[in-house]
Design a protein around this nucleic acid. Structure first.
Length: 296
DNA sequence: CGCCAGGTGCTGA
DNA sequence: TCAGCACATGGC
């Protein structure tokens, strides 16, 4: 099965490589991963998104929804394009969209993300899937579906630690149990507002403000969510100059400065500061106008 | 080989 | 409310 979907104002690369999702792997022009728990290969060619799978349950509607191709990006970017820094970030990464990921997978993944780096987060998640997920695949691409909360809830903590989850193992297990029990009703959150979603997620073990905002944004379409991690603090120095940076102040600022799509601004800024940093590390002729804004 | 990473929970002022 | 601290691990 093959879908070819017109994808104007969309960058598959920026969208999959900006750090919002952890399971996509690129080989050549193809990205391999899971979409609605169905293994797929995805690429973008001449303004079209191309998706291949052998599972007939996948629909074009599902694909469009996951990649947010139904979202009118231009007015969103126009609404957050309010200063020089975000303007530069938008200019560089236009086409980056906030995915609509599975809420549970997103929650579990970002619990593992705390005090961690992306490369290792990816490895941890992959081992978690191998250990507790069911196998699925086609044409040389085989992988493991992200495990259901029940599978993790019933696993011994020692087993989770063997996967290298470290101190996050008990957090993940406890949250998996809360979700499996129904104490945390994730299916309600799609229809809840940002504040209610955030509050519900904060009740989970291992979920603080940052993780709650990531899950609200990437898993539950709460575009006002503004996750503040170390990189975002760096980006926010541009706005705060000498003023003291606290999470509360940064949230308030983001809400009033960027508005109801602050989450989009966050993702563009996040990708912008991270790539600027790695570019600065790489040995290359220093004629890049990009990093200038960050040193302020 | 030290440093760092999409933070959180706990403690004591 | 808020600063200070421990927490496991491996990529770079």
């Amino acid at each position: 099965m093959r879908f070819e979907i017109p994808s104007p104002d969309f960058s598959l690369r920026y969208t999959l490589e900006c750090g919002q999702a952890f399971r996509w792997r690129r080989t050549g022009v193809w990205y391999k991963g899971f979409l609605s728990n169905i293994p797929v290969k995805v690429t973008q060619l001449a303004g079209r998104l191309i998706v291949e799978t052998i599972d007939p349950r996948l629909t074009e509607e599902r694909v469009r929804r996951y990649f947010a191709l139904d979202v009118d990006l231009d007015p969103i970017l126009a609404s957050i394009d309010v200063d020089a820094q975000i303007h530069e970030a938008i200019g560089r990464f236009r086409g980056l969209r906030i995915l609509r990921q599975d809420g549970w997978e997103c929650l579990a993944s970002f619990i593992l993300s705390s005090f961690n780096n992306i490369a290792r987060i990816q490895g941890m998640i992959e081992r978690l899937c191998e250990a507790f997920g069911t196998s699925a695949g086609f044409n040389g691409y085989r992988g493991f579906i992200f495990p259901r909360p029940e599978a993790i809830a019933h696993a011994p903590e020692s087993r989770l630690r063997e996967l290298g989850l470290g101190f996050r193992a008990p957090y993940l297990k406890a949250t998996a149990r809360q979700v499996a029990d129904g104490r945390v009703a994730l299916d309600m959150l799609q229809r809840s507002d940002y504040a209610a979603t955030r509050a519900a997620l904060l009740a989970c073990d291992g979920v603080g403000e940052k993780v709650a905002d990531c899950v609200a944004l990437f898993g539950f379409e709460k575009y006002a969510a503004f996750p503040i991690d170390l990189w975002m603090v760096r980006a926010m120095r541009y706005y705060f100059r000498r003023r003291r940076l606290t999470p509360r102040r940064m949230h308030d600022f983001a809400a009033s400065h960027f508005g109801r799509y602050a989450g989009y601004a966050q993702q563009y800024l996040y990708h912008y500061v991270r790539t600027a940093r790695s570019a600065a590390r790489a040995p290359q002729p220093a004629n890049q106008p990009g990093g200038r804004l960050l040193t302020a």
